[in-house]
Computed example of a mutant assay.
Amino acid sequence: MPTLLHIDSSAVVDGSVSREVTAAFRAAWEAEHPEGTVVYRDLAVEDIPHLDAHGIVAGFVPAEGRSAEQAAAFALREQLMTELEQADAVLIGSPMYNFTIPSSLKAWLDQVILVGRTAGENPSAKGTPVTVVAARGGSYAPGAPREPYEFVTTYLEKVLTGMLGLEVDFIVPEFTLAPSVPALADFIPQAAESKARALEEAARRAKGLAA
């Protein structure tokens, strides 16, 4: 049976646009795969610890040579890497925080990236399709004044494709803060349109994966 690895990283649980769009993708995917499995990681609810020295060193030490601390640290890395390797599709919700991804998502990435296994010349999850919902409060689209400050899709494309060998697509709802920030009030119609397009695209892509 197919498996979807679903990761949400928005610190906001209620009212998060990235969560709403990933939920639409997941619902469409589950409708196409009623007997499929969803492995869900909510990084705002269940913290992934930042990669420490024990976890780094353990990745390059044989199992029998690891200290107790290294073994414990690598056990988490093993679990997270296995979830990625066993997934038939990956779904990631990533809002923009201070021009880049949430630190919780960076922690997950650091744990799963291991050169010689998930990264390198023959990444173990190579070719797995990944859909990233990259929501942002304003607009960082080509031609926008803050286009040069966009470090969400630019970073994730490099790390997911260049290091992990995954096939990544982005869904980008913009102006998500327009309804709540007075300075962005003029962009409320654009926010609604962008969100509607994102929801439609999420459902379409989920169904497309099944096809």
Rank of each mutant, 00 (worst) to 15 (best):
A206V: 15
H54E: 15
Y97I: 04
T82C: 00
I92M: 12
Q190D: 12
A71E: 13
L43V: 01
T161Q: 14
A89W: 13
I171F: 11
A206W: 11
A141V: 14
D169F: 14
S104D: 08
R41G: 13
I113Y: 00
R41L: 12
A119F: 00
E150N: 10
G55H: 03
T131I: 13
G36A: 04
S9W: 13
I101G: 06
M81S: 02
T118I: 01
A24H: 07
G138V: 01
R146L: 15
V61L: 03
A119S: 15
A53H: 02
R205Y: 03
A11Y: 06
A72Y: 00
A87C: 01
G138R: 02
S104H: 04
Y97W: 06
R205W: 14
L199Q: 13
R77F: 11
P95R: 00
P102I: 08
G127S: 02
V45G: 03
P173T: 08
A23Q: 07
V61Y: 03
N122K: 10
W108Y: 15
A89R: 15
V17A: 13
A58F: 06
P102L: 15
A53Q: 02
A125I: 01
E83Y: 03
Y149A: 11
G137F: 05
M81R: 15
A210D: 09
A183V: 05
R205C: 00
W29P: 14
I113G: 01
L177Q: 08
E167N: 13
E193G: 09
P123A: 14
R77S: 14
E121R: 00
K158V: 14
I113Q: 03
V133Y: 05
L114D: 02
A144G: 11
P189Q: 11
G15C: 10
V181T: 14
P129G: 09
A210G: 11
I48A: 06
A58H: 04
G120H: 04
A28P: 00
L184E: 02
P179A: 13
R146K: 14
H54C: 00
E121I: 10
S194Q: 07
K195E: 10
D110G: 03
L43G: 07
G162E: 09
T131D: 01
V132W: 00
G162M: 05
V90A: 07
L166E: 09
P34M: 07
P148R: 12
I101L: 05
